[in-house]
């Protein structure tokens, strides 16, 4: 069940993503209204992070497109913030907590220009919001997992975006931090922002999100929580036999056959 909406804030159309010409995400097609807290769930290796990365233009796509605020990503970059998975960062890099949050302001003007007072103030405010101001001068590797995650969320806050994409913000995070992060997200939603969260715990997903995307190599369902949280959809997402897709994917890879005809 995929619920398409009018005037979506994010629209994904026939999106296929392949690694080494083997599709890992097939024909994703959905649309999301403004102001939702969207949970993206599915089993391991289902393509959740791949979906976010494709929308953020971090990996090439084999077919289809995605639109944000009815524009291409390029035109609306400044309205989008992305919190990557922790592994994508070089934790040994010489940089402090405040440094990292200030990076949220880098996209606002030419990299060759210095940050001004206002930028720094915004960064400090963002750190305050995640209750990490006391750690501003620490090296990022000296924090706990939950604290690190909060710093990266602060960086996203400093971007002052309309739409937030977060890749597994709750993984490796203690309960207290998880609660703190959820509070921040709720605050964002109250301010009218739209938030996408890749998540793996179904139980808490029911509490956190009001819109769900069920994903397993293809979109199984997308819609308001109450409409899509059904046994049938869960079975399709977590059960189901994908060996056919796997085998076809393997043939694509071996033959390096084009995934679309043109």
């Amino acid at each position: 069940m995929i619920k398409q909406v009018k005037n979506p804030i994010v629209e994904v159309h026939d999106l296929t993503v392949a690694y080494d010409n083997k599709p890992v995400l097939w024909n994703a097609d959905f649309s999301i209204p403004k102001g939702k807290m969207v949970g993206i769930v599915g089993p391991n290796g289902a393509g959740k992070s791949t979906l976010l990365k494709a929308i953020m233009g971090l990996i090439p796509i084999a077919s289809g497109f995605s639109k944000i605020l009815n524009e291409n990503l390029k035109q609306v970059r400044h309205k989008v913030a992305y919190v990557p998975q922790k592994e994508s960062v070089d934790w040994d890099f010489p940089t402090t907590v405040l440094d990292v949050v200030e990076m949220g302001r880098y996209g606002k003007k030419s990299l060759f220009k210095r940050l001004n007072r206002e930028d720094k103030q915004i960064a400090v405010e963002a750190l305050k919001k995640v209750k990490m101001l006391d750690f501003a001068d620490r090296h990022i590797s000296e924090l706990s997992g939950g604290q690190q995650q909060r710093v990266f969320i602060a960086r996203a806050l400093a971007q002052e975006a309309e739409i937030y994409f977060m890749d597994e913000p709750f993984s490796g995070v203690d309960m207290a931090s998880e609660k703190a992060i959820v509070d921040i997200l709720l605050q964002l939603q109250e301010d009218g922002k739209t938030i996408f969260v890749v998540h793996h715990d179904l139980q808490s997903a029911m509490d956190y999100f009001d819109w769900m995307i069920f994903l397993n190599t293809r979109i199984v369902a997308s819609g308001p929580l109450s409409e899509v949280f059904t046994t049938e959809i869960l079975q399709n997402t977590y059960g189901g036999n994908l060996s056919m897709l796997e085998q076809i994917g393997q043939i694509y890879k071996e033959k390096q056959f084009p995934i679309r005809e043109s």
Partner: peptide, 25 residues
């Protein structure tokens, strides 16, 4: 039927699969 993809989105992918599907599949 099996992948819950709407019927108006199935054609494009079938366009290339028709060239590579093996008899066994």
């Amino acid at each position: 039927k099996f992948m819950q993809i709407q019927s108006d989105h199935v054609h494009e992918s079938a366009e290339t699969i028709e060239h590579i599907m093996t008899p066994q599949l």
